[in-house]
């Protein structure tokens, strides 16, 4: 028996919005520690890794490890049927081929339930090597989204260059070029408004704007984003979900021909 109760269904809504354009379907691996998802997009250019801790749920029960193959488009349809502050419960029997999703309003005057068919997905688990990243940049997630959106007007590729002075985002294309430089914030009122850089070695890598913009769909989940980079390895774009867990996106860099 698997059962998880979330006080704000809006959180799961935002999570699905953050992954549905990269993945059509995904396996949700449930265990007593929580729910995990790891999947690459069809082109094997990016990977989504999500972890929701059991302690982040109002109630969480998972008697036996359970892998649920979910069509994300179907789940998005169901999530459209609830309000952000509805309480939701997801439930499945062991070896079930369906998942039940229930919503209740806070005053419990409206209850609804939806049953969704589960899928058998061939899933490959990837080993992601432990990496000591040369640069770790923490910045407001809205600022990162703004930069990706603005610069993708000019070119398909975004160069991210991190030095101890700051981080520079650059692109160029038919109409010209664009650069945005952010320096480390010296003073800030709130931690989430600052830009901080931990750097052991300068790094400069090129990434596809299209994917970065898709990762930015996670912006509503977190005020901060963490970018981790090392030479010639995938970029990690991480959004912490308050009290619940995190979503990490990995993106293979573009390579000089």
């Amino acid at each position: 028996m698997f059962e998880a109760r979330l006080l704000k269904s809006g959180q799961l809504k935002k999570i699905l919005e953050a992954i549905k354009e990269l993945l059509k379907e995904a396996t949700f691996d449930c265990s007593d520690s929580g729910i995990q998802l790891q999947a690459m997009d069809d082109a094997h250019v990016s990977l989504v890794s999500m972890c929701l801790k059991s302690t982040g749920f109002d109630k969480f029960r998972c008697d036996r490890n359970l892998s649920m193959g979910i069509n994300l488009e179907s789940m998005v349809k169901i999530m459209k049927c609830c309000s952000n502050d509805d309480i939701m419960t997801i439930k499945a029997q062991d070896n079930a081929d369906t998942l039940t999703i229930m919503f209740e309003t806070k005053n419990q005057e409206k209850m609804s339930d939806y049953e969704m068919k589960l899928m058998n997905l061939d899933q490959e688990h990837l080993g992601i090597p432990e990496t000591n990243y040369s640069c770790i940049i923490k910045m407001p997630s809205s600022e990162f989204a703004r930069i990706c959106r603005d610069l993708s007007q000019f070119g398909d590729s975004l160069v991210i260059a991190c030095t101890k002075e700051g981080v520079k985002f650059s692109t160029s294309g038919d109409i010209g070029s664009a650069n945005v430089k952010l320096s480390q914030t010296s003073t800030f009122d709130k931690e989430e408004e600052g830009v901080t850089i931990e750097m052991t070695q300068a790094v400069c890598l090129t990434f596809a704007c299209r994917y970065l913009n898709l990762f930015c769909k996670a912006t509503p989940l977190s005020t901060q984003v963490i970018l981790s980079m090392s030479g010639d390895v995938p970029l990690v774009v991480e959004y912490q979900i308050e009290e619940l867990g995190c979503i990490r996106y990995y993106l293979a860099p573009k390579i000089e021909e």
């Binding site: 990016s46 490959e124 688990h125 990837l126 090129t206 573009k254």
Partner: peptide, 14 residues
């Protein structure tokens, strides 16, 4: 020019 890398060359299937 640049070409898009793939993750398969970085991560291994467990």
């Amino acid at each position: 020019g640049t070409t898009q890398g793939r993750l398969d060359s970085f991560f291994t299937v467990i």
